[in-house]
Design a protein around this nucleic acid. Sequence first.
DNA 1: CATGAATGAGGGTTCATTCAT
DNA 2: GATGAATGAACCCTCATTCAT
Lengths: 197, 197, 197, 197
Amino acid sequence: MEAKPTRNEARDKIISTACDLFYRQGYLATGINQITSEAGVAKNTFYYYFPSKDALCVTYLQEIGKHWRRLLEDKIDEYKTPYDRLLAPIEFIKQWNHKNNYRGCPFLNIASEITDPDTDIRREVIYNRNVLRKIIGELFERLKNSDDKYSDIDVPTLTDKYYLIIEGAITACQNYGQDWPFETARSSVEENLLTVR
Amino acid sequence: MEAKPTRNEARDKIISTACDLFYRQGYLATGINQITSEAGVAKNTFYYYFPSKDALCVTYLQEIGKHWRRLLEDKIDEYKTPYDRLLAPIEFIKQWNHKNNYRGCPFLNIASEITDPDTDIRREVIYNRNVLRKIIGELFERLKNSDDKYSDIDVPTLTDKYYLIIEGAITACQNYGQDWPFETARSSVEENLLTVR
Amino acid sequence: MEAKPTRNEARDKIISTACDLFYRQGYLATGINQITSEAGVAKNTFYYYFPSKDALCVTYLQEIGKHWRRLLEDKIDEYKTPYDRLLAPIEFIKQWNHKNNYRGCPFLNIASEITDPDTDIRREVIYNRNVLRKIIGELFERLKNSDDKYSDIDVPTLTDKYYLIIEGAITACQNYGQDWPFETARSSVEENLLTVR
Amino acid sequence: MEAKPTRNEARDKIISTACDLFYRQGYLATGINQITSEAGVAKNTFYYYFPSKDALCVTYLQEIGKHWRRLLEDKIDEYKTPYDRLLAPIEFIKQWNHKNNYRGCPFLNIASEITDPDTDIRREVIYNRNVLRKIIGELFERLKNSDDKYSDIDVPTLTDKYYLIIEGAITACQNYGQDWPFETARSSVEENLLTVR
DNA sequence: CATGAATGAGGGTTCATTCAT
DNA sequence: GATGAATGAACCCTCATTCAT
C-alpha cells in the first residue's frame, strides 16, 4: 500500500511561490492573485491556510530564514580552520546575492516595505539578525580559543563590527549590482578586525 | 506692481508631501490619492507637473538627496579638524535616524521596493551613494594631507571600508530601532581604520 | 445658448438605482457591483461621489426620506377637514405599501439590517421617525383647535399612540402582504383615539 | 453502562450559536464561518446537519419561536386576573427588548432582510405572528367570559388592534432604544381598547 | 494652469457550498 | 458522523491614470 500522499501540497506550493515572488518582486508589489495563480491553487485555498497576506509573509520569512541558516551553516562547515570559518559568512552571502541577481537580503527588503516596527513581520527580521549575530559570535569565540594570537580579542565588540560590515556589504552589493562590496568586507575583516598589533 | 506670485506652489507642495509620505510610509504604500489630498491639490494638478508616480519618485529622491547632502555638509563643517570632520557623517546619519524614528535611509528603502535595477529610480539611488562616497573620500584625502601620521593611508580602500560600515550602521539601526550601531561604526572607524600601526 | 447640461448625471443615476435596489432587495443583499452596473457607470465613479457604501446608504435614506415626506404632505393636502387630514397618513402609507409589493418601510428595514445604533444610518432612521411624529402632532393640534369636540384632547399622548399604530400597521402589512392592517389602524384611530366619551 | 451521550451535541451548539449571532448581528451579516468557529465545530459538520444557511435560519426561527412562546406564556401565568394577563404580553416584550439592547424582534428583523415573501423563512415569521395573535385572542376571550363588564367586546377586532399596537411598540422601541413605547402601548390598550363606554 | 469627472484593473478578503475520505 | 481540503463568485474598496473642458 502507498504511503499517505504528501500532505499540504497546496500549502507548500503557496509558500514556495511566495518565497520566490516576495523576494524577486517585493512584498507589496506581489498580490495574492499572482501568488495563487502561479501556485496553481484557488485564491481561497490560500485563505484556508493563511489568515492574511501578512501571516503568509511571516511564514515566508520563517521559511526563508530556516533555509538561509542551513545554507550558511553548510558553507561554514566547508571550511576547517576557525579563521576560514569566520570568513565563510561573507563568502556565503556574496554567492547568495550573486545567484539572486543582487536582490539583497529578503529580510532587509521586507523591513524597508513594512514601516511599522511593531509587527510580527518586523520581529521576524530582528530574529533573523540575531541569529546571524549569534553565529558570528560563535565563530569569533572559537577563533579566540583556538589560537593564542587571538586570545585577547573582545568577541562581542568584534561581532558587532563584523555584523555591521556584512550588513553594509549586502546593501552596497544590492545597490551597485556588483560583488566588490564583499571583497571590501573581507579585507576589512581580515586587515582591520583580525590583524593583531 | 506685485512680484510674480511664487511659481509652482502646487508642485512644491506635492513634492514636500511626497517626501514626507514616501519616507514614512514607503513608496508603494503611498497612493497618489493620499499625496494630492494631503497636499491640498487636485489629482490632475499632480499629473500636470509629473508624468507618473515614478517620475515623482525620482524628483523626491533628488530633492531629499539635495537636502540630505546640505545637512551632511553642514554637519561636517561644524567640526574643525580633519579627523573630527571624517567622523561627522556617522554622527549626522545617527542623528537623522534618531529624529526620523529609525526609518533608515530613504534611498535604500526605495531600492528595496523597486526591484528593477534598470530604472531612473534605482539610478538615483546609486547617484546618491556615489555622492556619499565622494564626500567620504575627500574627507580622507584631507586627513591624509593634513597630518604626517596619515600620509600613507590608502584613501580609496579606506573610503570603501568606511562606506560599508556606514551602510551597515544605517541598516542595523533601522532594524533594531536603536542608536548603538552608530557607536559601533564610530569605534570601527576610529580603532580599526584610523589606527596606524 | 444651452443651459448647463445636467450636473452629476452619474451621481443621480447611482442614487436612484440605489434607492430602488436597497429598498427592493435590502441593503446588505445589494452590492456595489450591482448598483454601478445597473446604473451604467464604472465602479469607481461610485467611489468618486461616495466615500463608502454606508455613505451612499445615508444619502439613500435622506433622498427617500425627502421624497416620502413630500408624498405624505401631498396626500394630506388632498383632504380638507382636519379629521380627514389626520387619517391621511394611514391612507398614504397603505397605498405606498400596496404599490411596493408590501416591502414595508425603507427606514425600518434598514434599521433591522444595521444593528449598531450608533451610526449615521440609524440616526437617519430616527430623524425620519421624528418627522413623521411631528407631522402627526401638527395634525392633532389642528384638529383640537378646529372643533370644540376635540378641545380637550391630549395631543402628545395621542400622537404617540397614533404613531405606534402606524408602525404596527406597516410591520403587519409587510409580514402578511395584505392591506387589512391599515384598515385596522384606521378603525383603531377613529374608534378608540378620536371617539370622545 | 453509560447512558448514550447527548445526541446532536454539535447540532445544538450550532443552533444556539446561530440564535445568538443571527439576532445580534443580523442574518446576512453573519457568516457560516463565524457560526461554525464560534460553535467550535467543523464547517462541514454544519452542512451535515443543515442543507443550507437558509435552512438553519428556519430552524433558528423555530427554536427562538418556541423559546419566545414559552417565556411569553410563563410571563402571562405570573398574573392571575384576566385583565392583568391581557397586559402581560406588553410587559414581556418590553422586558425582552430591554434585556436584548433594544434589538427588536428576531422575526421582524429577519423579514426585513429576506425580501422574498415566498420562502420558508418568511412563512416562519407569519407563523410566529399568528401564534402571538392567537394568544392575544385567547386572553381577550377569557376576559370577555370572566367579567360582565367586558361581555360585549368584539374579540377579533380587539385582537387585531392590540396586535398592531404591540408591533408598533416593538418597532418604536428598537429604533429609539427606549422603553417608552411599551408604556404608550399599555396606556393605549388600557385606556382606548379596554375602557367600555 | 487647473479642475471635475470618469475609468479598467486589481487590491485583500469573505461568501455559501461541495468534494473525497 | 465528521473531517480537512478546496472552490468560484462576490465582497467593498483603491490603484495609477486619462479625458474633456
